[in-house]
């Protein structure tokens, strides 16, 4: 980031100065106004995002040696990945987290797509009402969503006898579905925006050529939607890998039963802040946080090189 901030003004310097040369070729001044415009965003972003990120990475290289904090290099990472207790918890959390994301990917995208297509159908009445109603849960607090669904799914007061949230086989998937219910409005709106922006000419031309509605969807609309599917997925991936609130609200920091709902966010919380009699360790917590960052980074790189570069975008 620091590199970026160093580079950007220079690049803009060149072009802006070039532009100015046309008017006043005699003087070449450093465009201070660019710095003025950039500074607030760069300062705030650096102070609240870049610096904490780098500092927590620095913190992950420290540890308690005989009660004194000292630089230990990558020891914390080695411990996190090799210690049988810690690594079991960590990999358990990573796997659950990927499963949590997989449910979102495979359920949220198709449902969002279906809803968007239905919304875009020309014969639908009350479109604004449906759109608003489906989107409203997204604006609710996660705590409220967790609490309401917990009551709905309660074997005592709710609609199902099966303790969906209480069995290790079903708890995580149920939580993921609750989250899908809450956030399905976002892919729906984004897909919907793409679908209604497709020019009518394309569809009409296809119809003239004899394409069925099914064909029009898969051959015309879907390819145009793919870049958005990728973008929605990567945003969901980042949000899911950082998720914490829903699990904490519904299952607590110990993410039971038997850690079956433990994801990286809850593992980080317990490690960093401690829990009940377990004492927190800020250095090991920072190590978990850094690993979260690396896992997210890896996912984004995979998306970028594996999908974003290959998927074809069309100018309309």
């Amino acid at each position: 980031m620091s590199q970026d901030t160093g580079l950007e003004p220079h690049e803009s310097d060149g072009s802006a100065a070039a532009a100015r040369r046309d008017h006043r070729p005699a003087r070449r001044r450093f465009p201070t106004h660019l710095i003025v415009f950039l500074l607030p965003a760069v300062a705030v972003y650096t102070m609240f995002m870049v610096y904490p990120l780098l500092d927590s990475m620095r913190l992950s290289m420290f540890g308690d040696v005989d009660g004194v904090r000292a630089f230990v290099g990558l020891d914390n990472f080695v411990r996190l990945l090799t210690d049988d207790l810690l690594s079991a918890l960590f990999w358990n959390a990573v796997v659950q987290n990927l499963l949590f994301f997989a449910v979102h990917f495979f359920v949220q995208n198709p449902i969002g797509l279906l809803l968007a297509t239905l919304l875009a159908s020309p014969t639908l009445r009350g479109r604004a009402t449906y759109r608003t109603m489906i989107f409203i849960p997204t604006t609710l607090s996660v705590v409220i969503v967790g609490f309401i669904w917990q009551l709905i799914l309660s074997p005592l007061w709710g609609i199902v006898e099966t303790p969906l949230l209480g069995r290790s086989s079903t708890a995580l998937v149920t939580l993921a579905m609750m989250s899908v219910w809450q956030y399905v409005g976002i892919p729906m709106i984004l897909f919907y925006a793409v679908i209604i922006s497709i020019p009518e000419d394309l569809i009409e031309a296809a119809r003239v050529d004899g394409a069925s509605g099914w064909n029009i969807f898969w051959r015309i609309k879907f390819p145009l939607l793919l870049p958005t599917v990728g973008m929605v997925s990567v945003v969901t991936y980042v949000a899911n890998m950082n998720a914490f609130d829903l699990i904490y609200t519904v299952k607590g920091a110990l993410a039971g039963p038997d850690f079956s709902t433990d994801i990286m966010g809850t593992l980080f919380f317990r490690t960093f802040f401690g829990f009940q009699l377990q004492r927190g360790s800020s250095t090991m917590g920072a190590t978990v946080a850094t690993m979260m960052f690396l896992v997210i980074l890896a996912g984004i790189l995979l998306y970028f090189f594996g999908w974003h570069r290959r998927v074809q975008t069309y100018e309309l």
Binding site: L86, G166, R167, F259, Q276, L277, Q278
Partner: peptide, 22 residues
């Protein structure tokens, strides 16, 4: 409960699992 794993957290998990039958 000073070390890892922490006995208190372990007992939460184990007691719940014993009752759950897992």
């Amino acid at each position: 409960s000073r070390g890892e794993p922490n006995l208190e957290n372990e007992l939460w998990d184990l007691s719940a699992q014993v009752i759950n039958g897992t």
